[in-house]
């Protein structure tokens, strides 16, 4: 019994440390797929999925690859839900509290641009902006590197024309 308790405490600590290390990813992915209060809902959903999959973590992959996969799959699949968050408490929605960024306005514009893209393109652009190389993006998305490269080139062009319109 003591062992179980210890093991659970250990798991909880490891989980909290994981959230601490990747809280930025959680927020950025959620914000790319939602607006307003729904961001908190999505962050919480991702946290729950991370907790649910925690014991099945496959250490062949980098921790961040695993976190990105879960976060992106959770956010892209969120449209399936007819009603969001009926069972959880309201307080638990606010897990992360980002402060106001000095580049907030420009970031808001960027997020708006990202949200005009289709779900899969959004995921690819997000990983590209994160500075992931084609190999890691391919691993997270399940595409070949060539496919990633082709898709990214198209998305970059799309983004370029959007920024051009904004700059005019």
């Amino acid at each position: 019994m003591t062992f179980n308790k210890e093991s659970r405490t250990h798991k909880t600590d490891a989980y909290l440390a994981l959230l601490e290390r990747h809280k930025g990813i959680l927020y950025k992915v959620a914000r790319s797929y939602a607006t307003g209060m729904e961001i908190d809902d999505l962050v919480q959903d991702i946290c729950m999925q991370l907790w649910g999959s925690f014991e099945r973590y496959d250490d062949r992959f980098a921790e961040s690859t695993w976190v990105y996969r879960i976060a992106l799959n959770t956010c892209i699949s969120a449209y399936r839900k007819e009603k969001r968050r009926e069972t959880s408490s309201t307080d638990a929605m606010h897990i992360l509290h980002p402060a106001v960024d000095r580049d907030q306005e420009r970031l808001d514009e960027l997020y708006k641009m990202i949200q005009t893209l289709k779900e899969i393109d959004r995921a690819l652009l997000l990983l590209y902006l994160e500075g992931k190389d084609h190999k890691e993006i391919a691993l997270i998305m399940g595409y070949t590197e060539t496919n990633v490269s082709t898709r990214l080139s198209r998305i970059r062009n799309e983004l370029k024309s959007m920024t051009n319109t904004l700059n005019k």
Partner: peptide, 28 residues
């Protein structure tokens, strides 16, 4: 943004722990 987020975001450990006690709603 990443650097700034890591500094400014505060994880509420109590609430994060609460997630574990919630009935796990697997996506499907």
């Amino acid at each position: 943004q990443q650097v700034h987020l890591q500094q400014s975001m505060e994880m509420n450990k109590v609430l994060a722990k609460e997630v574990q006690t919630m009935k796990l709603q697997q996506l499907f």
